[in-house]
Nucleic acid binder design. Structure first.
Lengths: 186, 186
DNA sequence: AATAATTCAGACAAACTTGTCTGACTGTTT
DNA sequence: AAACAGTCAGACAAGTTTGTCTGAATTATT
């Protein structure tokens, strides 16, 4: 029996999620997490062997939150063109809700150049899931050609470019720029 | 008389530049900088009142280095289309030379969500200089229309998207993807 | 020659970092 | 009844962080 989903565990991961995303991984200490989560230090290390493992859980949770938000946002949308555009609009909403904190996967990698293998794996896993979404939508759009991947990758570049620029400028205009570009190339 | 450009000062800023970019700002301590620079701690604080000021100088230097590298790369190129493509190829070379450390301005902002005003100003200044380059090139391309900014912004999104994806994946394929997209939209 | 600016080595402060450990206290399962 | 899983508070270790300060030595300027 491993890692029971107790309320203490949930409290820890939720607090870590909030603080890592808002303040950054390196600027968030274990002590702050346990204090704000209202749990004992031994409880944290009971559930997560190290801060690194907590980070992996954080990335996983962020990925699930994004997927859930996106799924809800494109619920019932059958037109792939519209789904892609809605994905960008969803990003806009996400950034507004999260104080323009950008993409958690990109940020973790920006913060930790040494890159523990575990963290690296999870971050890239999450990013590949994003790419897959665009590939699926573009596939529906044009079943034939070999340009599916190319178009999906272009959209993916616009997506990440817009996300980081919104983070830097603390405004949504880069997503609007991306939407303009999208409407031209789709 | 302010901030004479002594060799000690240069040694400090060069070492800080190297370490901040390679290891990240938060993971690089003052002590490591003075040790590797071979200077006394008092000398560092003589030239830079705080780590924050050193960070601003670092961003400025990074901006100058990139501008110089780009200028040399597109020397003698008159075709704006070619200049833009060369800019992306230059980025590719830059990332290879710098161990895929991404964009220093984006990274600093990713690392410091609280954002000191000084650092924020310098980072955005540098990014606006990048945008201006694309605007200038696109202006040469199409003098007439009101779509100059839109096209430049699209290219800028591809540029940042490719830069961060290269950082995440530690490979150059995102830039190749961007180049494919560029050749279609230019 | 006298004054200024610059640099040195390193101690020190006060705070923070991750992680371990003690010892006790619940509740549940066997 | 015994064992186990989970949680608690907090001390502790060993190290790091930024920044200040002392006091002396070197270099440059006037």
């Amino acid at each position: 029996m491993t890692t029971a989903d107790t309320s203490v565990r949930r409290q820890i991961i939720n607090t870590a999620d909030r603080l890592f995303y808002k303040q950054g991984y390196n600027l968030t200490g274990i002590n702050q997490i346990i204090e704000e989560a209202g749990v004992a230090k031994a409880s944290l290390y009971y559930h997560f062997p190290s801060k690194e493992d907590l980070c992996v859980a954080y990335l996983k949770l962020r990925g699930e939150k994004w997927s859930a938000m996106l799924a809800k946002y494109i619920e019932g949308v059958s037109d792939p063109r519209e789904a892609i555009i809605k994905c960008f609009e969803c990003r806009s909403k996400y950034l507004l809700q999260n104080d323009f904190s950008g993409c958690s996967y990109i940020r973790i990698i920006a913060e930790m150049p040494q890159r523990s293998a575990k963290i690296n794996r999870q971050a890239i896993l999450n990013k590949e899931k994003q790419r897959l979404f665009f590939i699926e939508q573009v596939s529906k759009l044009k079943k034939n050609s070999s340009t599916v991947n190319d178009l999906a990758n272009t959209i993916f570049l616009l997506f990440d470019g817009a996300t980081v620029q919104c983070q830097v400028y603390r405004e949504l205009s880069p997503i609007e720029n991306a939407l303009k570009a999208l409407k031209l190339i789709l």
